[in-house]
Simulated assay, not measured.
Amino acid sequence: MKKRIFAVLFAMMMLAGCGGADEHEDHDHAEGQKQEVAADDAASQFLQSLPAEFPEESAVSEGFFTINDGVVSNQEVWDAFAEFVENGEEAEVVVCQYTTKGGAVLDYVTHHADGTIEVVTDTTRDGYNDEKSILKPVETYTDLKVFENFSLQEGGTAYTVCVLSDNPELTADDFRTHWINMTAEENHIYMLFVI
């Protein structure tokens, strides 16, 4: 039986270099991008059904695993999802994290019994107005890893990061190298969240 769980988080570091614009332009841009998604995509439809303005209180009340400036809500939702993944069971979770602009980034994550992990990413509410602020089509990965005490440089601030990839042998050092060299995307590596 398919289990549905919702959670929220994403990597603010991935958006640190984005430029902003006024709220009216952000809303118009988000609405235009949402129309490009196929109508039969359930995850995309769910993300589109959420309000254009999506404050932290809404994410928490929806039961999402929510991260805002390092503060986490609904940790038990992510923990339950992670347990289903570990047991090879089907499960779904929505991960939402807030950017420095105060906007929500949403990832609808589905783990299948065959071990594949599908993700639909919605950055249309991220508070930025650029080519990255879109509702992306489904991406499929085969591995989920959580690296604790992860830092980009020796002695740097330590974070917990969740990474999706197609490489079960991916280490924290491998991910650090790809991140610094900006080769993560070309190697089909996605940072799902950072705390």
Rank of each mutant, 00 (worst) to 15 (best):
K2V: 04
K2T: 05
K3T: 05
R4L: 02
R4V: 05
A7G: 05
F10K: 03
M14Q: 07
A16P: 04
A16S: 06
C18E: 10
G19K: 12
G19D: 13
G20A: 12
A21F: 07
D22A: 07
E23M: 07
E23G: 05
E23R: 10
H27Y: 15
D28E: 13
Q35L: 08
E36F: 08
A38F: 09
A38N: 05
A39K: 11
A39N: 07
D41W: 05
A43R: 02
A43C: 09
L47G: 02
S49D: 14
L50C: 08
L50S: 06
P51D: 15
A52L: 15
E57S: 14
A59Y: 12
S61M: 15
G63W: 11
F64M: 12
F65V: 04
T66S: 11
T66W: 05
V71C: 03
V71G: 01
S73P: 04
S73G: 08
V77F: 01
A80Y: 08
F81N: 15
F81L: 11
A82W: 06
F84L: 15
E86Q: 15
E89G: 09
E92T: 15
V93N: 11
V93R: 10
Q97H: 12
Y98L: 03
L106W: 01
H112A: 02
H112G: 01
T116M: 03
I117D: 00
E118W: 02
D122Q: 01
T123V: 00
D126S: 11
N129Y: 04
N129G: 09
D130K: 08
E131R: 12
K136R: 07
K136L: 01
E139L: 01
T140C: 06
T142N: 11
D143K: 13
L144T: 02
K145H: 13
F147N: 03
S151Q: 09
S151E: 12
L152R: 13
G155P: 10
G156E: 09
G156W: 09
T157N: 11
A158L: 06
C162L: 06
V163L: 04
L164T: 04
S165H: 12
S165F: 08
D166G: 05
N167H: 05
T171S: 02
T171V: 02
D173H: 07
D174E: 01
F175G: 03
F175W: 07
R176G: 00
T177V: 01
T177G: 04
N181Q: 07
A184D: 13
H188Q: 15
I189Q: 10
M191Y: 10
L192S: 04
I195G: 02
